[in-house]
Design a protein around this nucleic acid. Structure first.
Length: 270
DNA sequence: CAAGCGTCCTGGTGGC
DNA sequence: TGCCACCAGGACGCTT
């Protein structure tokens, strides 16, 4: 599923095939994903040149002079650049036809994704309240420490709040908490400055590493899917409930925190 | 303002 | 073997 590293990988894979090229047409095979697809995708985008492909949080923006297509991959979405005669498969919801003779094809089985429009000079309201990028200078342990004071929600929930920091999903938060030795249940406001420093470092390191690994799938980005999933073997906590803790060997605990399955070591994480 | 929870959707899994 | 209930996931938006 596309987490921040996959979205960044998608952006990097897309950019060389898309930037500087003109969208000649848009084919919509269904009117809505999570929300109705913005009408500008068919009315305004065709004829425009894509100047840049940007990422904000898990959103991608295709910038043109007339505005930006704003898309989110949800949990099952993918974007591929394919030859124009490529067979349409299930859940290929949108094609942007490029002047290169290829298509930018959006596939999303579960339709948690979206394809919206951001007029020039505006910031879409979905992006307006987002917290800092985890790999930017704005994000560090001090920032987390300051923002968390007085918060009673579990630190896991706090870190997954996109207003606090973007791009930290259920998988990476589990890994970061494990690496930093912090219990996901601890109230955010009761976590010390030192431990937030460790958490921020863990988040940066894990996301950065995952992006590096995502880079390996860049090469065959255009070819049919089948990317191996770089992370599964490397995960310490996520998806390993009941298995021995990689550090102390005691069984990892699993429970729901904030409606989300959470795995952690009751011994190593305090 | 903060926190908690329902909701959207579909493929994959595990149980019977 | 077939069927079905259930779960996973991000994030909005409503309620408390």
């Amino acid at each position: 599923m596309p987490e921040l590293p996959e979205v960044e990988t998608t952006r990097r894979g897309l950019a060389p095939h898309v930037e500087g090229h003109i969208v000649t047409a848009a084919t919509l095979r269904r009117p809505d994903l999570r929300w109705p697809i913005a009408e500008e995708i068919q009315r305004v985008l065709p004829g425009q040149r894509i100047d840049a492909v940007r990422r904000r949080a898990k959103y991608l923006l295709l910038d043109t002079q007339a505005g930006s297509a704003l898309l989110h991959l949800g949990m099952s979405g993918s974007l591929r650049v394919v030859p124009a005669d490529t067979l349409v498969r299930a859940h290929d919801h949108v094609d942007l036809v490029l002047d290169t003779g290829r298509l930018l094809r959006f596939n999303d089985p579960r339709r948690f994704g979206c394809l919206l429009w951001q007029p020039p000079g505006e910031v879409h309201e979905l992006l307006a309240g987002l917290g800092p990028e985890p790999l930017s200078d704005e994000f560090d342990g001090d920032y987390l420490y300051r923002l968390s004071r007085g918060r009673s929600a579990p630190v896991k929930t706090f870190l997954m709040d996109q207003r606090v920091v973007v791009g930290v999903g259920n998988i990476y938060v589990a890994e970061a908490l494990f690496e930093a030795g912090v219990s996901p249940l601890r109230a955010a406001g009761k976590v010390s400055r030192e431990r937030y420093v460790a958490l921020a470092e863990a988040i940066c390191r894990i996301l950065g590493h995952a992006i590096t690994r995502g880079g390996t799938t860049l090469r065959d980005f255009i070819s049919p899917d089948g990317s191996p999933g770089y992370f599964e073997q490397e995960l310490s906590a996520y998806g390993r409930g009941g298995e021995p803790c990689p550090r102390c060997g005691r069984p990892l605990r699993q429970a729901a925190i904030g409606q989300r399955t959470t795995v952690w070591c009751g011994h190593c994480q305090r």
